[in-house]
Structures are given as structure tokens and as C-alpha cells.
Design a binder for these strands. Structure first.
Length: 412
DNA sequence: CTTCCACGGGAAGTGATGGTAC
DNA sequence: GTACCATCACTTCCCGTGGAAG
């Protein structure tokens, strides 16, 4: 027996559950894709492409549908000698400024050996680089900006569609496809940008439970061997996805995680219980990821709330979190943040779903304030903190306190 | 009705960090 | 090296708000 041994194989093709898998047919998006196709038609006619704005909640097939159509568009455009089509897809997640978008776009057009740094240049320099890359590429260029709502300024969305009119480009014809799950993003755009970016608007509605079941069944059939999935598992995964705004991605992730758990445990069937375990596991991952992205003070605020929860002092308003937080900050030799900033951290934690906030208003007596409490199991948060945080001194004493379920008198 | 509270949101500014260009 | 440049976490300050108290 070697060191490695093949697992009991429940998967026929695990990739079919991945986000980037492209099934031959996209379920439940017929009308949307038909309209999308019409909006892309000018490309094949060799005309200036439409700018398209696509919106709909997460996991409703916006990105999948876009990739699907653009792959076909590239294929079909190849049959016409007079069309040189280039498609670049950029996910704007984690990029907050037009400057960042511009640097990434320049790099998309450049060879791996010739990439530019994402900081350091003046803004105008980066734009000039972008124009020369676009013109050097030439032909028809479609730029897909996925999660475009992450960009906090209009600049690139204003510049790109107008680059030709403003004389920055002479060769290339540019089409922008903006994808967003934030409905209000469109309304917040300046009128100038709105009119050019939103020439064609497409809306993808959420999947209903039946569509989710159909999608999951379609993928599961490819992904798993016969008889691996218990009755009701697909429906359960679909139900979780449907509850969270018709999100197919979430349902698929859940099914895949359940499959992975089954494989790890050397069992050959996926049961309802395994799906529930998978859900917990995914939740843990989400929390861990959220916590690892926090600053030192974010962690200290969370430790403060954690101990208060442990002592049964939650829900607690920010002014009562503060003394605990400042004492922790002093223990690790950090200057405590100003109250306003500490509240920002509390708000960030509740955005991440790690803690929950309830707004209260006692009018003239108490004004408006928020009461915070932990939204997750204390032990789970503590474990996540331990894995990602190097706040040794605090962590030890907090962990001990949680373990013994005693109240340490020095933190009152 | 007005008053008042503790907030949240936003603007402006600071100083550190990490980068380019000369 | 110097002169710039963008970005981040943060501070400071100010203004607007919901709703019970007066």
C-alpha cells in the first residue's frame, strides 16, 4: 500500500459543481439570454458595441450567462474576417478605485513579463497606458466589469465609453458590460455615466425553488455517480439557496461541500445530515475569512464583545463595550481608538454577520443607540480568532475564561 | 407642538506605507 | 538620494435623524 490511496469515489466529475463550470444549457434564463443576445448583436455586425448594464442578486446566473454568451460570440465572430474581437473580464471585487481598475486592465492586455505595479503612478499615466494598450489591441474590445459596484468613483466608467470620442483612441471600438448586484448603484451614478453605461439594461431575477432544484439536479447528474445522493438532498440544498434570495451559487457550494465531507468520511452516500454539517462548515469558513480580514483593533473589539457575551452582559451598547475594549487595547500596548472609530468596527462586525445589532431609541432620555450581541457560537468565534490572530496575551486569558466559564474579576 | 439624546454618515485632514521616475 | 503618487486606518468635526420626554 502506498502513501496515497484513492478515496471512495462518489464523484464522477466534481468540477460540475464548481462556479466556473459551464453546462451546455443554462436553466431558467431563456428570456434574459435572448435579450442579452440581442444587445450583443452589433458586435457581429461590425458596429460599435452597446454598453450593457446587467443587474440581479448574487448567484442568479449573471456571470455564468455572460461567459456563456461571450464564448459563443467569440466563436461566431471568428467566422467573419472583418471582426477582431477581444473580450476581457475583470472582477472588481477588492478594487475600490478607478485607478485600481485601470491598472488591472492594463495588465490584462500586457504579457506576464511586462506587468505594471498597482501603485505608484500618477492617475493620468495609468490612463495613458490603458489607451495605448487598447489601441495596440485594436478591433472590437468588450470589457466586462463584474461586481462593478465595488468601484467608489465614476472616473473610469466615464472615461472608457468616451475614450474614442475624446480622441484617446483611434483604432479600438470599446464596449463595456457592467455587472452589479447592487440595485442602488445604478441610481447613484452621475447622469452622464448612467446614460452611456446603461444603454442596454438587463435584469436577472432570482431563481425560485423549482429552478434551483432543476439546476442542482442538472449538475448533480454530471457530478456524482448513480445513487450517491439521498432523496431530498437536492431539495434541501435548493431550499437553503432559495431562502437566501434564490442564490444558485450558494446551493451548489453547499452540495459540493456535502460531497467533500462524504468523501473525507469514506461514506458513499450524501444524507440530509451531511448537508447540515456542510452548512455549518461553510459558515465557519465565512466567519474565519471575515475575521482574518479585520485589523488589530477589529479583533480587540470582537474579544471585548466575546467576553461580555460570556458574562451574559449582552446585548450591550457601544458605550458599555468601550471600557472592556480599552482595557484589552492597553494590555497589548496599543492606543485605544476614539469611540467613533470603535463604533465603525462594531458596524463592520455586524456587516460580516459575526455580531448582530438592534437599533433602539429611547427618545429624549436615551436617544438612538444600537445594542450588540454575538450572532455565532462563542467557541466557534474563539477558534477562528485563534487561527488568524497573533494577539497572544489577550487570547490566552479570554480562552481560559470561556473554557472555565468563570468571570475574571479584573475585567469588570 | 418643541426639545434633546446618542447615534450614523460624511467631509477634510494626517501620517505611515509602499510604490514609480529621475 | 529626492520628488511624487495612491491608499489605508485613523482622527476630528459637523450635521441630520427618530422618537420619547417635556
Amino acid at each position: 500500500m502506498g502513501m496515497f490511496e484513492r478515496d471512495t469515489e462518489i464523484y464522477r466529475n466534481r468540477d460540475a459543481l464548481r462556479e466556473d463550470y459551464q453546462p451546455a444549457k443554462l436553466v431558467g434564463r431563456d428570456e434574459e439570454l435572448e435579450r442579452y443576445k440581442t444587445a450583443l448583436q452589433p458586435v457581429i455586425n461590425g458596429e460599435q458595441p452597446n454598453n450593457i448594464f446587467l443587474y440581479g442578486k448574487t448567484g442568479v446566473g449573471k456571470t455564468a450567462g455572460t461567459r456563456f454568451l461571450l464564448d459563443h460570440l467569440i466563436e461566431d465572430a471568428a467566422q467573419y474576417d472583418d471582426i477582431e474581437l477581444t473580450v476581457k473580464i475583470l472582477n472588481c471585487d477588492g478594487l475600490s478605485s478607478s485607478y485600481q481598475i485601470a491598472t488591472r486592465l492594463v495588465n490584462k492586455f500586457r504579457a506576464d513579463s511586462n506587468q505594471i505595479s498597482t501603485t505608484g503612478y500618477p492617475r493620468a499615466t495609468v490612463y495613458d497606458m490603458l489607451w495605448s494598450e487598447l489601441d495596440a489591441c485594436g478591433g472590437t474590445i468588450i470589457i466586462v466589469l463584474d461586481e462593478v459596484d465595488h468601484i467608489e468613483d465614476d472616473s473610469i466608467l466615464y472615461q472608457l465609453p468616451r475614450a474614442r470620442a475624446n480622441g484617446n483612441l483611434t483604432e479600438a471600438k470599446i464596449g463595456i458590460i457592467g455587472i452589479s448586484n447592487d440595485f442602488s448603484f445604478r441610481d447613484d451614478l452621475s447622469p452622464k455615466v448612467k446614460s452611456s453605461l446603461c444603454e442596454e439594461e438587463l435584469q436577472f431575477p432570482a431563481y425560485d425553488a423549482n429552478e434551483l432544484i432543476e439546476i442542482l439536479s442538472q449538475r448533480a447528474e454530471v457530478a456524482f455517480h448513480e445513487g450517491v445522493i439521498d432523496d431530498g438532498v437536492v431539495e434541501l440544498c435548493a431550499a437553503y439557496g432559495a431562502k437566501d434570495a434564490g442564490d444558485a451559487r450558494q446551493s451548489l457550494d453547499l452540495l459540493m461541500k456535502a460531497g467533500d465531507l462524504a468523501r473525507d468520511h469514506d461514506t458513499d452516500t450524501i444524507t440530509d445530515n451531511l448537508v447540515r454539517d456542510a452548512r455549518e462548515e461553510l459558515e465557519r469558513g465565512r466567519i474565519r475569512e471575515g475575521i482574518s480580514g479585520l485589523t488589530q483593533h477589529g479583533h480587540l473589539v470582537l474579544y471585548a464583545l466575546l467576553t461580555l457575551e460570556q458574562q451574559g452582559k449582552t446585548p450591550v451598547r457601544s458605550r458599555d463595550v468601550r471600557p472592556r475594549y480599552t482595557s484589552f487595547a492597553e494590555q497589548v500596548g496599543a492606543d485605544p481608538l476614539v469611540p467613533r472609530r470603535m463604533r465603525d468596527h462594531l458596524g463592520e462586525l455586524s456587516m460580516l454577520g459575526i455580531i448582530s445589532a438592534v437599533e433602539r431609541n429611547e427618545g429624549r432620555r436615551g436617544g438612538t443607540y444600537r445594542e450588540y450581541s454575538l450572532d455565532m457560537d462563542t467557541q466557534m468565534i474563539l477558534t477562528a480568532l485563534e487561527e488568524t490572530v497573533a494577539q497572544v496575551g489577550i487570547h490566552e486569558s479570554v480562552a481560559q475564561m470561556v473554557d472555565q466559564e468563570t468571570t475574571l474579576s479584573e475585567y469588570t
